[in-house]
């Protein structure tokens, strides 16, 4: 029975991550979106720590700490400051309306379940459900990136997508290089978020709305 308890908690945390992904889909204010993303990263950190515990893999605690410290605290704080400094705490412009987006999200989760559960009948129950949840989080992140125009929310969409990957990597028992991969991703995100792009875009356009960028397409006649 003890094993079942371990499984249930892991299951709950991974499922919670999918739920928080849905929460992010319908946030229409940037501050709220950033807060929900911090929650997303926090749930991920718990889930990774739990995996580290049940797999008896101490190196995964490093990944959990990175998720907690970097993605649940440092990045949200930095994003808050950027949003504040740029003065863009108004409504998010969504390309598709929220109802349709949510329906699309439900469809994607169903797709993820069908695909992953069908191809992994031999894997152990924990790993296959983790993979299905991870693919759902990944697809929801992707959905968020395509339905948003705003640079900050696109970055948040990308980060939630990446959280799904970390979930998959930690769920795959004994996978090497997980810590290295999560560090590589953090570097990628740090590069993008903290600096260069948002500041450059701000500097050149006084807006982080990517629609403003569209007019500069080189091939317009």
């Amino acid at each position: 029975m003890k094993h079942d308890f371990f499984f249930d908690v892991a299951h709950m945390l991974a499922g919670g991550l999918v739920l928080v992904s849905f929460l992010m889909l319908y946030q229409d204010r940037l501050y709220a979106l950033i807060n929900v993303f911090a929650l997303h990263a926090f749930v991920l950190a718990l889930s990774v720590a739990w995996q580290a515990f049940i797999q008896d893999a101490p190196h995964l605690y490093v990944t959990a700490v990175i998720a907690l410290g970097f993605k649940a605290i440092v990045i949200p704080v930095a994003l808050h400051r950027i949003v504040e400094r740029l003065g863009i705490h108004r409504e998010i412009e969504t390309v598709v309306n929220i109802g349709v987006t949510m329906l699309g999200g439900i469809g994607l989760v169903a797709l993820a379940m069908v695909v992953m559960l069908r191809v992994t009948p031999t894997a152990d129950a924990l790993a296959r459900e983790d993979l299905a949840f991870a693919l759902s989080v990944l697809l929801l992140g992707l959905l968020m990136m395509v339905t948003r125009r705003n640079a900050v929310s696109q970055v948040i969409g990308f980060m939630s997508l990446e959280n799904g990957l970390i979930l998959a990597a930690t769920g795959a028992k004994g996978m090497p290089l997980v810590v290295e991969i999560s560090v590589a991703f953090s570097v990628l995100i740090a590069f993008i978020v903290i600096g260069i792009f948002l500041f450059r875009i701000r500097e050149r356009f006084d807006t982080v709305d990517l629609q403003a960028l569209d007019s500069f397409r080189g091939d317009s006649e």
């Binding site: 993979l131 991870a134 693919l135 990944l138 992707l142 990136m145 640079a151 696109q154 990308f158 997508l161 990446e162 990957l165 998959a168 990597a169 795959a172 996978m175 991969i181 990628l188 993008i192 792009f197 450059r200 875009i201 050149r204 356009f205 990517l210 960028l213 569209d214 500069f216 397409r217 080189g218």
Partner: peptide
Amino acid sequence: PAAIEAAWKYFILGSVGIALALFGTI
């Protein structure tokens, strides 16, 4: 402006690409 748009587009699409590749690797 054009260079930043190009870099941004490349970053977004390239990152999604490598994210999918990582999922495949897992």
